[in-house]
Every structure is written in structure tokens, then in C-alpha cells.
């Protein structure tokens, strides 16, 4: 059998695929963070908690409300997104004029409160949710058994990332949005409602997090800690990609998923730190991140 670095090529391919699939979660989450940072200048620490909220909402919809997985996938991002809009209107909008640090502290506090509430209500072991029947089972790819659900996660996330990128970079609405962040006053004088755009952007960023939460729910245990575990890595992804860069966060998310996947094979002990090692190196060489623009 052919080998790469002492590992059979089939096992190697399998590991890459798993890495890619984890990278998809990083990509969707860091995409949301990048949009929010780009448009609102807020470092949204509550992102992980809202990802977790999305997963819990999916679990609740499918077990208690009797909705199907697909219905949950449509409903949950909207509901959690509306919750995000509420947060923006009630709390965040007062902080835009202040230093980044205030937004960071506020959202960090929010994350702790949300996680604490879920822990109090549901305990730390969390809840188990199974994947929808249509996506159960696995296909034999020759080098590994790929659970169909994981294939769906990869497909759905990449499509969503491309749609989001297209909306922001290639449509008229997106151009208003980008102009609004450059010079809100000027754009407003053209009759465009900038505050509304900003609110909707935050809502969309949160909806992305909730969507990732629903996707993740059948794969990892739905527990109050799932957001806290992943969010630090996602922040590193955003920093490596370049704060606020849309394409940067997508590509970096997928890329780091692969890097992490390979680390799990060659030096598993370091798999939780490798992302930060990469971050340190990137910051030393390119302080603005791989895709960021120096200001």
C-alpha cells in the first residue's frame, strides 16, 4: 500500500476529509465574526454562545416541538438571528462610538450569562440529537466510510459561504453595506438607512452562527460548553485570515481545519494548540493577517 509519512494514503485522505469538515464549522463561524467586525467594528465574543444556542434550539425543535430537522434548519437561524437583532438594538448600538474593548467586554459578559443559563437548565453533560433519517448511514468512499451527514455538512457550509461572499462583494446591497462601513454619514446622505443595515448585518452574522449550531447538533453533544470550546479557535482563524476579510476567513477556516486534522494524526497532543502556533507565526510575518490589508 502507498504511504505518506508512514501513514497509508487511504487513512491520510480520510483524515483530510474530517479536517475539511471541521474547517467548515470554523469557516461559517469566522465568516459571521468577520462580517460583524467589518461592518460594526464589534468583536463579537457572544458568537460561540449563540452557536450553542442554535444547537440547543435545534434539539428543542426536533425533540419537544416535533419539528423535522429541515424545519429546524430553516426556523432556528431566523429565531436566533432575531434574538441577535434584539441584542444589537438594546445593547450594542450604544457602543459603536467607543473603543473596541467595550463591545468585546459586553459580548463576553453576554456569552457567560447565556452559557450559565443553559448549564443551569440542562446540566453539563448536554443532550443528544440524532441526524435526520434521510442523511443517516454512510457511503464507502474506498478509503473511508463517510457518514452521509458529514458530507452534507461540508456541502451546505461551502454553499452558504459562497452565497454570503457573493452577497457582500458582488451585489448592490453588499456595496451599500461596504460603503456604509467606510463612511456612514456620506452613505446616509444618499438616502440609505445605515443603522438598519447594520442591525440586519448583525442579525445575519448571528443567524450564520445559529445555522452552524444546527449543523453541529447531530455531530457533537449539544452541551452548554460547545460554543466556548470552539470560539477561541475561531477567533484565531479570524486573526490569521485578517480581521474583517470575508474571503480570508472562509479560506483560513477551511485551511486550518485541514492543518488541525493533520496534527491529530502526526502529533495529536498538539491538536488543540496548533492553530495558535500558526497564529503566532502569521502575526510575526504578516501582522494584518493573511488576507488583511495593512492600514
Amino acid at each position: 500500500m502507498t504511504e505518506i509519512f508512514g501513514i497509508p494514503i487511504q487513512a491520510f485522505a480520510g483524515q483530510l476529509l474530517i479536517g475539511l469538515q471541521n474547517g467548515c464549522f470554523y469557516a461559517i463561524l469566522s465568516l459571521g465574526l468577520a462580517i460583524i467586525f467589518g461592518m460594526l467594528n464589534i468583536i463579537n465574543f457572544a458568537h460561540g454562545a449563540l452557536f450553542m444556542t442554535g444547537a440547543f434550539a435545534a434539539w428543542y425543535c426536533t425533540t419537544s416541538l416535533g419539528l423535522s430537522y429541515w424545519a429546524a434548519l430553516a426556523v432556528v437561524p431566523v429565531v436566533v438571528g432575531l434574538f441577535g437583532i434584539l441584542i444589537e438594538r438594546l445593547l450594542l448600538q450604544w457602543l459603536y462610538k467607543l473603543d473596541h474593548l467595550y463591545g468585546l467586554l459586553l459580548t463576553f459578559g453576554l456569552a457567560l450569562v447565556i452559557e450559565g443559563l443553559f448549564q443551569h437548565k440542562f446540566g453539563s453533560s448536554g443532550q443528544s440529537m440524532s441526524s435526520p433519517e434521510a442523511l443517516q448511514g454512510a457511503v464507502n468512499l474506498g478509503f473511508m466510510f463517510l457518514p452521509i451527514y458529514r458530507g452534507w455538512v461540508v456541502g451546505a457550509s461551502i454553499v452558504l459561504c459562497i452565497i454570503t461572499w457573493f452577497m457582500i462583494e458582488r451585489t448592490r446591497l453588499g456595496s451599500y453595506l461596504r460603503a456604509g462601513t467606510e463612511n456612514p454619514r456620506l452613505v446616509q446622505s444618499f438616502g440609505i438607512n445605515v443603522p438598519l443595515m447594520i442591525t440586519l448585518t448583525y442579525g445575519y452574522g448571528i443567524a450564520l452562527a445559529a445555522f452552524a449550531g444546527v449543523l453541529a447538533a447531530p455531530i457533537i453533544q449539544v452541551s452548554p460548553h460547545m460554543g466556548a470550546n470552539i470560539i477561541i479557535v475561531v477567533f484565531a482563524v479570524v486573526v490569521i485570515g485578517g480581521m474583517g476579510s470575508i474571503m480570508g476567513s472562509i479560506l483560513t477556516g477551511l485551511g486550518l481545519g485541514l492543518v488541525e486534522g493533520l496534527t491529530k494524526v502526526f502529533y495529536p497532543e498538539a491538536s488543540s494548540t496548533i492553530v495558535f502556533v500558526v497564529m503566532a507565526i502569521v502575526l510575526l510575518i504578516r501582522p494584518a493577517g493573511l488576507f488583511g490589508k495593512e492600514k
Binding site: A11, K264, P268, E269, S271
Partner: peptide
């Protein structure tokens, strides 16, 4: 054996190693 960090959320990679 394979040693994974505490609080890992996705174990599929380690399980594939165990499987092979």
C-alpha cells in the same frame, strides 16, 4: 494509543486511527 487534548469536540479523527 492516541492522546487527545482535554475537551476535544470531534473525535472522528482519533476513531479512524483506532479503526485502522
Amino acid at each position: 494509543s492516541v492522546r487527545h487534548p482535554l475537551n476535544t469536540s470531534d473525535f472522528s479523527s482519533f476513531l479512524l486511527q483506532a479503526q485502522s
